[in-house]
Design a protein around this nucleic acid. Structure first.
Lengths: 113, 113
DNA sequence: CGTCTATGTTGACGCTTGTCGATTCAGGTG
DNA sequence: CACCTGAATCGACAAGCGTCAACATAGACG
């Protein structure tokens, strides 16, 4: 259900419809908070493309707040989570980065590594 | 002063610092509202890369609200404005799209058209 | 100058959001 | 089982945000 597939043609191609904008804005909004952006970057740059909460929770806010932001990122379709024993691991939804990049630069930014 | 040059290395490269996140989040936040995203797309996709307010103000909200959102986009460094006679024209700051794209996909998405 | 049109600004309103402390849940360990 | 640690949820609060109607400003035109 991740918004990645649905959304969208590049912003420079034609004016976005209300529906497209609604979907895309939800993803941008999720990255529109400094703490969330740091958490997201921490996960995305972590080895293996995934990280335990304990690895990334040092962003200067309380533990409930970290949990809250991770939930938001998950709801936006940017992260997925999985519990393994004591710890919970978050990983980046790969298609999302490509989709958002394509939305901005239009070109073949969809070509992933 | 546009945030484009300052910001940043790709999110997947290393965890963002608090300062980087603050800067980048401001740009994502600006695109995190459906109405603003539609306005931005309308300008970006308009011929010549610029548009008069009168050309794009049909997004379902009142005129003051349109003006308010355009101001926000301007403050975020995504748009610039210029008055020419009766009308005010907005245009996309070109480096910004490339910078945000690079932030997401990491690759050589900076290569513009 | 007076008036008309195109944008911007102000002030107010309700809703959303980021944050925390307290609590709860989940799993491991003794 | 009791206890401890990692993580999520709850409840509350202040701050921020999107929206509008009313008003203000800027330029064109008579």
């Amino acid at each position: 259900m991740s918004n990645a597939e649905v959304c969208c043609s590049p912003v420079t191609e034609r004016p976005m419809s209300a529906e497209e904008a609604e979907t895309a804005a939800r993803m941008f909004k999720a990255l529109g908070d400094p703490v969330r952006l740091r958490l997201f970057s921490a996960v995305a740059s972590h080895e293996g493309g995934e990280a335990c909460v304990c690895d990334i929770s040092d962003v200067g806010v309380s533990q409930p707040t970290v949990s809250h932001h991770l939930k938001k990122l998950k709801e936006a379709g940017l992260l997925t989570s999985e519990r393994r024993g004591t710890w919970v691991y978050y990983r980046v939804e790969p298609a999302v980065l490509a989709a958002m990049g394509r939305l901005l630069v239009g070109s073949s930014a969809g070509a992933l590594t």
